[in-house]
Design a protein around this nucleic acid. Structure first.
Lengths: 132, 132
DNA sequence: GGTTTACCTTCCCCTAAGGGGAAAGGTTAC
DNA sequence: GTAACCTTTCCCCTTAGGGGAAGGTAAACC
């Protein structure tokens, strides 16, 4: 079975049909050849593109970053150093997001510690948010 | 100066005029009274709502969570325990997001360690993403 | 008073990454 | 033949506003 319908690719990749069509219409993956009835038929190479894309999305790469990644993927003269650089940059970005979230957690934890948490309306969390 | 124009509220709160109007049209803050010319005029209470909202947004609360928070804020019979419960739930959610991001970082770091990062096309990051 | 500048209003389109569902047509099974 | 399932395109929806247009208003300056 060299070429597969979109339903079969859904089974194979775990991606939704909506997502798969979206990736094509956005130009992130190659244009998929059609049969006479208009149905898309996916080659193994097409499926590989989708698998790579899925892996990258699950690794937190944005669609725009994936676009670049796919371009590198299709570059016959690519250097693994380029892929590594993109990945290291991605790691840095995610770590920054983590730090921001951690500072929020610290702030919220400080506020909850001040709050009595009883049946009175006075609440130092609200007071704290008002002043922040 | 008991009531302020939106421009003055922008100065006062650091929020954008777009955001302030959005909060009103979304029903998150109270409806703002208008002058004859249609201009909004903000009372101190209106400004307080916006300040609380801003603090909550900066603390990572979503607009929908802010909506609930504002409802509690306006509830004369509120219990600080309710606010505390919402805040603790928010802390839990953020911690989950942090954990997810951390697992992504671990995965990406493992991949970069395997990648040679040279001028060859073979790249274990791509291979790893394809299989994941 | 007239003009310029700054401010306010609503309105519409745009973002990211698809999801939901309609309407229409194709394919398969009974 | 027809029921069930598959595929197609199309349009609206989501978050939390941003950008900018078109038009009315207010304050400042001459």
């Amino acid at each position: 079975m060299a070429s597969k319908t979109i339903g079969q690719v859904v089974e194979l990749t775990g991606l939704s049909a909506k997502a798969i069509r979206y990736y094509e219409s956005s130009g992130i993956v190659s244009e998929i050849p059609r049969a006479n009835n208009g149905y898309r038929f996916y080659s193994n190479e097409n499926v590989d593109e989708l698998l790579l894309l899925k892996g990258a999305r699950e690794a937190g790469f944005s669609i725009d970053q994936c676009r670049q990644l796919m371009a590198v993927f299709h570059d016959q003269n690519r250097h693994s150093s380029d892929v590594k650089a993109m990945t290291l940059a991605q790691i840095t970005q995610i770590k920054q997001r983590i730090e921001k979230l951690q500072s929020i957690v610290l702030k919220l934890e400080a506020l909850t510690e001040q709050c009595q948490g009883n049946d009175q309306p006075q609440c130092s969390i609200i007071d704290g948010l008002l002043k922040s």
